[in-house]
Design a binder for these strands. Structure first.
Lengths: 165, 165
DNA sequence: TCCGGGACCGAACGATCGTTAGGGTGATGG
DNA sequence: CCATCACCCTAACGATCGTTCGGTCCCGGA
């Protein structure tokens, strides 16, 4: 609160003309984060090759991370400090996000665009880990689309096989 | 400190007969973490198929996470609260760990066991992200070797290709 | 047996921090 | 022109928390 007031050129107490309390700030940022990531997933086409949709999902996620690094940090790390009801609500949103992500891989396996013996839970976990961890090293201005494409290529064709495209 | 004292069945002040201060505790746990992960990497054979060595490295890392979840959490997240010199020392150790990890993929590409056009930086980042993120969902008692093998399989052969083994 | 020291207690200190209270000022709009 | 209201200030409060201090107890070695 002190830092925030200082950054605004205002006394600590003056903040409370505008906000209710510290917890509300975290909650707002967390909600913004959830919205941003879900919105990015909304941009992913509902149809078309799964491979392209996975690529789009990774691109979208990384773009949010790079463009709103602070919000992404709250979404992936600082949300733990939410309390009670709000925490539950956030966790539900977060779980829903992961579920939407996982659905891509499941569908890819089911329709046969990905290998039919794919372990989609592990695949989704691998992809989500990569983008979740990105907030630790991705910096604003990084070529996120390119990074996402590299992840996609590696996830699709592996380190041993040879690209089929 | 209060929680710690309570867990030990002792008054807060009594702790200072045994330790110097709170910061030392974090430093000790962080050092323990770095040692544990490096030790796990030491167990990876220096020779033999790269694929098996990568699998061993992932297994080792996940085993440390599952068996010493609190220490792993400090190693991956809480180390940020180290100060000054100690923080620098830790970051160096962490960087060295990542570098040792990355060397596996580079070597695999160089000797041709992995695809020669492999983006080894991205590959290492993908693998490290997966195991780094594991502290958020891996629980003591999980079959870490199996999880590591699933990661390995996916990383090696991808979601689209078919296994060559 | 006596002495020294380590472990512990109880209490307080001092710093930080989120928050509240009370008062002032300046712009707005009836 | 005056009342209102948003905004800000200064000051202080209250809680938390890491740490310190003086004193007590007990155990092992001289």
């Amino acid at each position: 609160m002190g830092d925030l007031a200082e950054a605004l050129g205002v006394q600590k107490g003056s903040l409370y003309s505008h906000i209710e309390g510290k917890a509300d700030l975290l909650w707002e940022v967390a909600r913004e984060g959830a919205e941003a990531f879900h919105r990015a997933l909304d941009e992913v086409p509902e149809e078309g090759p799964i491979v392209e949709r996975i690529r789009a999902a990774l691109r979208g996620h990384l773009r949010v991370v790079a463009e709103q690094l602070d919000i992404a940090t709250v979404f992936t790390r600082e949300w733990r400090y939410l309390d009670g009801e709000r925490r539950d609500a956030f966790v539900a949103e977060r779980r829903r996000y992961e579920e939407r992500f996982r659905a891509l891989f499941r569908e890819g396996r089911e329709v046969g665009e990905l290998r039919t013996d794919l372990d989609d839970v592990t695949a989704a976990r691998l992809a989500l880990s990569a983008v979740n961890w990105a907030y630790t090293w991705l910096r604003p201005g990084s070529p996120t689309d390119e990074v996402a494409d590299r992840f996609t290529a590696l996830l699709l064709d592996g380190m041993r096989g040879y690209s089929s495209r």
